[in-house]
Design a protein around this nucleic acid. Structure first.
Lengths: 192, 192
DNA sequence: CGCTAATATGAGGAGAACTCATGTTAACCC
DNA sequence: GGGTTAACATGAGTTCTCCTCATATTAGCG
């Protein structure tokens, strides 16, 4: 079901995605669909969570395979892997780690919850995980503002990479390069 | 109508916003609504465009009123004004300059167009306008990568500020400060 | 005061998300 | 095996939203 959801997202996008069509393609009745997912958002949320875990696994194994001399190389690795998944993983181009849409303003109305309830911000999860990997593997000093700095870096990088893929189907190479520069520049204060 | 849309967005969020309710509050029949806006997205797009123009006007008049010694002060000004609008302008917290949702993957299906058609990326408009203001007022050299650098800076800043307002109703002050640092750090390469 | 073009209106069509009464299977005990 | 019961599966139907379009109203003009 998640697989079919991902393929459909690539074909028609989030707005035109229907629960009925996902169910039909996955060959499950619509009623069964709603036993696994409470609503349409929960389906996409589950896909985003799977993407997140796949991404972190890839990063971890790549870091383990080829140990890096310094942290700036890690920025390249992390960005390049994101780009690779954007290009190859179905659905990743549309939802990546979540953040599809929500109702930030009001109280908890039905159908207006922010994506990811327990892991409120998926990019925070990514940031924390990447930070601990770098602290472990490269022995950088875990300063007090480091956690926040990583969250900021991930959020900013995510935005620039989204832009890169909006501007160009395979991701604008100049913008991808600029993204790396942005992150390196910013983090150099915290990882001196 | 845009005013009522903005107020409603703050109350119920984008997902729960209905054209009917906007029309009812603005005291226009639903049919009349669809003479001004082709669909729900076009309504929000119009609001985003109005926000964008209001923002740029404020920035321009503030820069004109108090000339700045160097460009780093301009970063503060630009970010602070954005924060002010997030806090005070109805609906700005939900849609700011657009970018609400779309179907990046597929072809042009009905209801799946990206926001802002002529000004494809509103943040690009913001970036270009800010760049020309800075080039004019502060006489910075317009290098070749400057245009792209501003787009990247605006995109990244937007993302971090969105995060700041997700984390905290009035905008997390630490994240706002960190956003300024991020932008200054990055742009210092281009505005040396 | 007709006549025509433009605009205003809201009941209704189209279709999506989600529900729930009914049907089906599985598990357990005697 | 037969019987009882709990868990799960199913898809027609309900509800609600976006959006349309036939009709009504107004405005412009000779």
């Amino acid at each position: 079901m998640l697989d079919e959801c991902a393929l459909l997202l690539d074909e028609v996008g989030y707005a035109a995605l229907t629960t009925k069509e996902v169910a039909r393609r996955a060959e499950v009745p619509i009623g069964t669909f709603y036993q696994f997912f409470t609503d349409k958002q929960s389906l996409v949320r589950a896909l985003a969570l799977r993407n997140l875990e796949a991404y972190l696994d890839r990063i971890a194994s790549r870091l383990a395979a080829a140990p890096l001399s310094d942290w700036t190389d890690a920025v390249d690795l992390v960005v390049d892997e994101f780009v690779r998944m954007k290009r190859t993983t179905p659905g990743f181009g549309v939802v990546d780690f979540g953040e599809v849409l929500s109702a930030p303003g009001g109280p908890a109305l039905p159908g207006t919850q922010r994506m990811l309830d327990e892991a409120l911000e998926n990019n925070v999860v990514v940031a924390d995980r990447l930070r601990s990997l770098l602290v472990d593997l490269l022995g950088v000093a875990p300063g007090d503002g480091l956690s926040r700095a990583f969250v900021v870096a991930v959020e900013a990088a995510d935005a620039v990479l989204k832009l890169a893929f909006r501007a160009h189907p395979g991701g604008d190479p100049d913008l991808i390069a600029e993204c790396k520069r942005l992150v390196r520049r910013y983090l150099s204060d915290h990882l001196a």
